[in-house]
Amino acid sequence: MSAESHSRHYIKIWAILVVLLVISVIGPMFGHKWLTLITAFGIACVKAYLVAKHFMHLDIEKAMIRWVLITSVVLMGLFYAGTAPDVMEHTGLHWTNDAAIYASENPVHEPGDHHAAGAGEGEAGHAAGEHGGDAHGGGDAHGAPAGAEVASTAEAGSEQGGETEEAAAPAPDGEVAEAAPATAGAAPGFDAAAAFQSSCSTCHGEAGDGNGPVGAALNPKPANFTDPAFWEARDDAMVHKAIKEGGAAVGKSPMMAPWGSTYDDAQIDAIVAYLHHFNTAGGATTEAAGETP
């Protein structure tokens, strides 16, 4: 075979590939499902075969190489077969993937439209209160169907003492609690109330009274922000340090987790300012809380 016929052969293959490309682009234009399937994917397989055979000379390569490549492709098929029943299907034996169902019914197509905030559950019938948005460290809260926010419960299992330490819990934040005034200034655009809902309310309670669901199981009890004595006993710097470096840093329970890696200083200041609004004794403003800790 002379040099020219070699290159002419390759150019011929290339021409076929281009034709196939054109068909695979035009085919789906007609919008028939099976036509799209055949033209787009069928032709893709043919093109891949042509490139592998003529360009990569797989046909004259030793058989062992073909077997290696076929094995890796078969393994991917095996992975697909083992995983699809759980990921592709949205329901199965005794389980429903509410998140996927919810995402299918309220899809996000355009950059503008967001999940309908605060919408009720998917049809799985949770009677729970507003569902939590995923926290992503505060900030953008996509609506999320996942499970149920634990509404402040009448029976907070109060008598269930147990000698557990206090735990801080970043539960997914509910929608913004109406009552709390948005705190201005400290960190522009940062919603301290939402941060409190997502990160603090599980232990400190949505009313800041220290008996959130997880708080109930803790000993010592989480801090109660509605109790004026709490604010007299310490200044904002100590509260800031407790939030930033965790309870152990200020001699309190190590179960109060350090939030320094999730919220920056300005955001923590905004949270501290927000906590003051729980104080029932006429809201000792941040300035007045200058007593020694």
């Binding site: 992975f79 990921v87 998140a99 299918s104």
Partner: peptide, 23 residues
């Protein structure tokens, strides 16, 4: 980046990671 491959909030699936990991 905050994508939602495995975050059920945005339609992702935590079980997919378990399959990828244990495969």
């Amino acid at each position: 980046l905050g994508t939602g491959f495995f975050d059920p909030g945005t339609g992702g699936d935590p079980i997919l990671w378990q399959h990828l990991f244990w495969f």
